[in-house]
Design a binder for these strands. Sequence first.
DNA 1: AGAGAGTGAGAACGGGCGTTCTCTCTCGAT
DNA 2: ATCGAGAGAGAACGCCCGTTCTCACTCTCT
Lengths: 190, 190
Amino acid sequence: MTIDTATAQEQVLAAADALFYERGVQAVGMDAIRTASGVSLKRLYQLFGSKDELIEAYLKRRDEIWKTMLAEHVDPAKDPRGRILAAFDFLYDWFQQPDYRGCAFINSFGELGTVSPRVAELADAHKADFQRRLTELAQEAGAPDPARLAEYLILLSEGAITRSSIARSAEPAEHAREAATLLLDALLPA
Amino acid sequence: MTIDTATAQEQVLAAADALFYERGVQAVGMDAIRTASGVSLKRLYQLFGSKDELIEAYLKRRDEIWKTMLAEHVDPAKDPRGRILAAFDFLYDWFQQPDYRGCAFINSFGELGTVSPRVAELADAHKADFQRRLTELAQEAGAPDPARLAEYLILLSEGAITRSSIARSAEPAEHAREAATLLLDALLPA
DNA sequence: AGAGAGTGAGAACGGGCGTTCTCTCTCGAT
DNA sequence: ATCGAGAGAGAACGCCCGTTCTCACTCTCT
């Protein structure tokens, strides 16, 4: 009963995601991933060459899922201001997930940022991408200086992410949304 | 040539601080701290009972130093608005330190938050303390709802901290300060 | 039918960890 | 001068990790 390569990969990634995200990357051994995924160690190593590669695949998958969740909140919103605020609604929903543990990129960066250039790079890219998206939304909303507005909004978002995970509360998303509306009032043309 | 207990403790803490902060808590072995501090393993274990206790002492020391640095920026400022903005000047100076690697509490929480209740507790306490301080400053500035203003300011601060460490730039402190002035304009009586 | 490539389960290996122990030495009190 | 408490250096211990290897087995293709 050999398992399909694609499904084996997905099983491993799903198990790695749950374990890495919950306990941190270094605290999880390959053996735990083997047990959780049901994929043998041998197969695991031929699918992903090393733990480092698996970590990279984990982060890339997180990035995809995250972008999809963001889009699902932003896309339905019609007026440009509402699209920006939808990003904070997304944060609120995210924070409420029972297994929420902050941003996987921030956490991994904190663990391995100095020692693994690849992880540092992926974290940077993930955040830069979010910034790009917010800048687009700011532009669509007619902000005179979209990059500046986006920068302020990203500070509120990142702050809400770390605060919600340490304080174990979804509230920071609501506060960030409130603060964002004040900034929109100040920086968007009436 | 036996060393004084107090100075031995301080040498260990200084070495642990540098290593834990740079490489993360889990990545640093007791042997590395022994080598860096010049204090024998035996002595080290009789000063601090275990690595967990040393981590705790490290975080408590960080908290003290951090509060002192914050106070050194806030105290000289006279007008209440300037005292709030001084917090962001502090962030800017902090981010510019060559060994800056983000917030030790956020990093440690990301590594050990799920597995070590003590670390989670210390991180929470550190952040709550900062929030308390900002609330005081907001109150002194005459904010109608000091807790709310403080909450917004803390979001900007936390956001600047993580962003500056991932992007390796002190700029987020300046942006956070700008955004803070906009919020002060909106929420402080003229 | 039989050879061979590839499988899963788990043992094996080399290395690093936190912690304790051993051994030798120093030095202050008697 | 001698005893003993405590020191430093580092070996030792038991455990866990990432990775590879072994081995019996199961399919697939000829």
